[in-house]
């Protein structure tokens, strides 16, 4: 019972808490974020597709004010003033991170997808003039070929990602770059540890939960990539390492069970059923055999006084 009261109180608090928190503050650096290229019609179009799939359910069709008004905080019409007052960076941040009833889309959608949605939403604002940003400067010289390598450090029992850059045939480690490490799962990648920055030797070290299952031999497919892929590019590296817990779970339909197929039925039920049927039918056939004998006896000649009737 107590659990339900707690639930009730918590949900009430949550609802009040939300209404109070109607402004959504975005970190300053994120606010100023801009796309590097100008929105095109094709971007708007693919943005419209994504919008229809992911956003329409709550936000409705932009400009028609048919968003779901029952939600708190209100999703609002993306074509409306309140929406359009956001900077591009704010929109990007809000779509990426989400808040309360608004899901986070940073994994579900690519950065390009999010920019396309913004392009689409902006197309409903005739007064909007897009600003674009310059390419962000990095400490890595122009033209450097970056390479990542994942390895397992036996001594420290950690996974290391080595980032190197090659310029004019000279290869050097690259430090100060944020790298995230993911483990492949069937429907998506699971982040291992937190994002780590490469050190002076170009190495980022990751530790992981030793219970994480791998395949039957303990292999886990790992994937390293840049946190800021829009700065360093979409480079990623994959490697299979034996760092997982070997997983040898048998197929779920392996053992004998009442619900399994006939071949995997519990033995007692197979024996019981066939045994009972056999016994009864042996007797039935015995009776049928007697009938045959009765029939045969009828062919024997018999005197009248031998007859019972």
């Amino acid at each position: 019972m107590r659990r339900y009261y707690t639930t009730l109180i918590l949900s009430v608090c949550a609802v009040f808490g939300l209404s109070a928190q109607s402004t959504w503050s975005v970190p300053q650096d994120q606010k100023e974020k801009l796309n590097t290229i100008e929105f095109t019609e094709s971007m708007e179009k693919s943005g419209a597709d994504v919008f229809a799939g992911k956003c329409k359910v709550c936000h409705g069709v932009p400009g028609q004010n048919n968003f779901n008004a029952l939600l708190n905080p209100s999703p609002g019409d993306p074509a409306g003033d309140k929406f359009q007052k956001n900077t591009d960076g704010e929109l990007f941040y809000k779509i990426s991170e989400g808040r309360v009833t608004m899901p986070s889309f940073k994994t579900a959608l690519s950065k390009d997808d999010i920019w396309n949605i913004i392009a689409y939403v902006r197309s409903f604002n005739p007064t909007y003039v897009q600003e674009t940003s310059e390419k962000i400067e990095t400490n890595i010289p122009e033209g450097t070929q970056l390479a990542m390598d994942i390895s397992y450090n036996t001594d420290k029992d950690v996974v290391e990602v080595l980032l190197t850059g090659t310029l004019n045939d000279i290869t050097n480690p690259v430090g100060g770059v944020n790298i995230k490490l993911m483990a492949q799962r069937y429907f998506g990648n699971l982040q291992i540890d937190e994002a780590k920055s490469t050190n002076k030797r170009g190495i980022a070290t990751f530790s992981w939960n030793k219970e994480l299952p791998g395949d039957s031999l303990g292999n886990i497919e790992l994937m390293a990539s840049f946190v800021d892929s829009d700065i360093y590019g979409p480079l990623s590296s994959e490697k299979k390492l034996v760092i997982g817990k070997p997983n040898n779970n048998p197929p779920l339909n392996k053992g004998r069970a009442m619900w399994n197929t006939v071949k995997k039925a519990p033995l007692w039920i197979i024996i019981g059923y066939t045994g009972a049927v056999l016994i009864v039918w042996i007797f039935i056939f015995y009776v049928l055999f007697s009938l045959k004998n009765i029939f045969a006896l009828g062919k024997e000649s018999i005197s009248e006084d031998e007859k019972l009737i």
């Binding site: 989400g98 899901p103 940073k106 579900a108 799962r185 069937y186 429907f187 998506g188 939960n209 219970e211």
Partner: peptide, 21 residues
Amino acid sequence: FGDQNEDAVTNGTTRQTVVLS
């Protein structure tokens, strides 16, 4: 939704993968 053998499930909306257990 996910695979218990991988101890991971993926959210259908956010597509974030988390540890099932």
